[in-house]
Each structure stands twice: as C-alpha cells, then as structure tokens.
C-alpha cells in the first residue's frame, strides 16, 4: 500500500494551499489596483488638434474660466467655446500663428474642431455642472489644477467612490461661491471644515446619495 502515494505527496496539500493563497491574493490585488478609474482613466492626456494651453490663458493672463466655458453656470454641460470666442482676441493677438489655423478656419466657415474629450463620465451618469459650481464646488475638485495645464490631463478618477466621498461629507469640499473659479486657492483643513459646515447648514445642502441622483 505504501507505494501508492509516494512520500512527497505528504506536503502536497500545504503546497496547494500556498499556491492558492498566492494566486488568489495576486488576482485580488491586481483587480483592486487595475480595475478602477484610478488606473483606467487617471493620466489620460490625449493629443488635441490644437495645442491650447490653459497655463497661458487661465493662469498667466488671468482669464476667468467662464470667459470661454460660459455655459457652466447654466447648463449641466460645460461647453467648449465656439471658435468665435477664441477669435474675440485672436483676430488681433497672434493672428497669423499657424497654431490657430484650425480656429480661423472654424470661425470662418464653421468647420468643426475635433477636440478630444478628456473628462467623461459614463453615459448612465448624469452629472450636472451648474448645480455643483453654483453651490460652491470648485472646478479644481474634479479637474485638478487645470488652470496650470499645458495640456489637459485626467487628474482625478471621477469614479463613483470619488463622487460619494464628497456627497457623504460635503462640508470638506464646499467653498465660498466667489472662490469657485479660483483654482489656486489653498484652504487649511480647519478653515475648510468650519466654512464647509456653515455652508452646508446655511444652504441646506443635501447632497443626495440616492442612486437616482446620478443614475437614470
């Protein structure tokens, strides 16, 4: 009988167990690390048809976000400006620059500029820009310091966890509406907590955690 199972088989169950733990652990770790927008979306920086620099326009020249994204306070969608908005200045500033060829063409005969959308929620998510910016959620919360971006890069995951972090505790994120478009503003945690708690109370903020708040 002793020949049926050789001696090394005595340690087989232990080896199988170790193998299972390693493989299971690696799969879990890999899924947690990779199967999330923190990996799949963050860092996306497509090459745009025009090398528009937010750093120059927003940070150095100090142009307000809403000069170009003028729909953000009224609409669920924050618009890409029309070519005519660019041409308000670029009919004189850098007016012959080859970089602006597509803009001039678009302003002249309505040809579309194929900007690549960087920040994109899934189609089953209904995010509304206007309700957020009008209630003290700064652009910087979701878009990072886009005002200093030479090229727009996906900085925040925009995952459901990301939304819920704020919806569960809006006091940590709300700021004075006049500072919503000041992306460089630094607020200490203590100050934020104090100010945020006040806003949540005064404005009766009830950041919904109901599925239907975002999913329809």
């Amino acid at each position: 009988m002793s020949d049926i199972f050789p001696k090394w088989t005595n340690r087989l169950p232990l080896k199988i167990a170790i193998g299972a733990v390693l493989i299971g652990g690696a799969l879990t770790a890999g899924t947690t690390y990779y199967f999330t927008p923190k990996y799949t979306r963050v860092g996306y920086q497509p090459i745009q048809p025009i090398s528009f620099s937010h750093e120059i326009h927003a940070a150095q020249l100090g142009i307000d976000c809403r000069y170009c994204h003028n729909g953000v306070e009224k609409s669920w969608y924050s618009n890409i400006p029309a070519a005519s908005t660019c041409m308000n200045c670029h009919n004189q500033v850098a007016k012959d620059s080859p970089k602006l060829e597509l803009v001039r063409e678009s302003a002249l005969n309505g040809k579309l500029i194929s900007w690549v959308q960087v920040h994109k929620t899934p189609d089953y998510v209904y995010f509304n820009h206007s309700v957020h910016v009008n209630r003290g959620v700064s652009c910087v919360k979701c878009h990072g310091q886009v005002n200093h971006a030479e090229e727009v890069r996906h900085e925040k995951p925009l995952s459901m966890t990301f939304c819920l972090e704020c919806h569960r505790d809006p006091a940590k994120h709300l700021r004075d509406p006049k500072d919503v478009y000041n992306l460089d503003l630094k607020i200490s945690d203590v100050e934020q907590e104090k100010m945020g708690t006040k806003f949540v109370h005064d404005w009766k903020v009830n950041a919904s955690q109901n599925c239907s708040a975002c999913h329809r």
Partner: peptide, 9 residues
C-alpha cells in the same frame, strides 16, 4: 496608476 497615457481609457 496615474501614468500619463495618450491612449483613450
């Protein structure tokens, strides 16, 4: 995570 990529997510 977070490394810059030109390819769509």
């Amino acid at each position: 995570r977070g490394s810059t990529s030109r390819k769509p997510p």
